[in-house]
Design a protein around this nucleic acid. Structure first.
Lengths: 157, 157
DNA sequence: ATTCTAAATAAGAATCATTCTAAATAAAAT
DNA sequence: ATTTTATTTAGAATGATTCTTATTTAGAAT
């Protein structure tokens, strides 16, 4: 499973004249093993250090940047200082959107294709060829909402 | 017009116990005068310097952060290193989305309410209270698309 | 197999955006 | 008028990211 995806990425790299170096492969592996998380470059670096103690942070940044250009990962920004790198599902058509809680900072993912009609409309109306999109919602998650309710009760009593 | 909006913002600030200091007022004015642009903190700072040579960059950051908490401005991130600050239209229900060209970097704005049904669905399905959202499309703008076509012609001829 | 060349890496310095700190000022409350 | 509190300035500090230089590596050409 992981090896299949690696092979796909390997082909993508070679098509563009890049090679899948050990460092790049290790980086991709880490991303594949943490598909659900939203890792920062530093996070990836720390995880990589276990298997590749000699890898440099700059190399991680370079690898992630390259993977981003190949649309293997997406750069995401949740407003804390760091860029995060999301592996894109092999199915290029499906994007995942985010529910970001402004109280506790948790990020929930939702998958959906709601935006396809919108993309078509944009291409027609603006002549803009959509390659990618990003949709994030900010608000209060269920957990924080019920916490807030509890506190209200306490305040009243 | 500008003064009305300033007055509204002033009220919002005072409601939360903040005051509209000269620096904050100047910051808001700059934003109002450049509503179409996507200014970084540094951009705002430079523009402010003309009228307020003594203002400090940290103050600009603090003012923008405060305005962001009040939802007067939105923080936007286009993937170049800097956070940009967009004045939100007085009509809180309308958000603007962005068409970001990956070739030339231009950012076009589109206004739309397409997402309201989606927000309702998220509240029902996930119990997540949506306060704000952000929708950006990346792709190739009309101009770059025709440029690319021209180059194809040249290559063939 | 050896040599050559271009790509990739490590290490750490450098840069850039942003935040923090301490001292000074201004405004509001007493 | 005095005290308290919020705000600002200036510059130092931080943290993420990029750059630089010397070194290593992989593959191509001999």
């Amino acid at each position: 499973m992981i090896d299949e995806q690696l092979e796909t990425i390997n082909r993508q790299l070679r098509t563009k004249g890049y090679k899948l170096t050990p460092q790049r492969e290790a980086t991709v592996r880490v991303l594949l093993e943490h598909e659900k998380d939203h890792l920062s470059a530093e996070d990836v670096y720390m995880l990589l250090k276990r298997s590749n103690p000699d890898i440099g942070l700059a190399t991680v940044y370079r690898s992630l940047e390259l993977l981003s250009e190949l649309h293997v990962v997406e750069k995401v920004n949740f407003g804390d200082g760091a860029t995060r790198y999301d592996l894109r599902s092999s199915d290029q058509a499906h994007h995942h959107h985010h529910l970001i809680c402004t109280e506790c900072g948790t990020v929930e993912e939702i998958k959906d294709d709601w935006l396809l009609p919108m993309e078509n409309r944009i291409e027609k109306e603006f002549g803009f060829k959509v390659l990618d999109h990003r949709l994030d919602f900010q608000g209060i998650c269920q957990v924080c909402k019920s916490k807030a309710k509890d506190n209200d009760h306490k305040a009243v009593s």
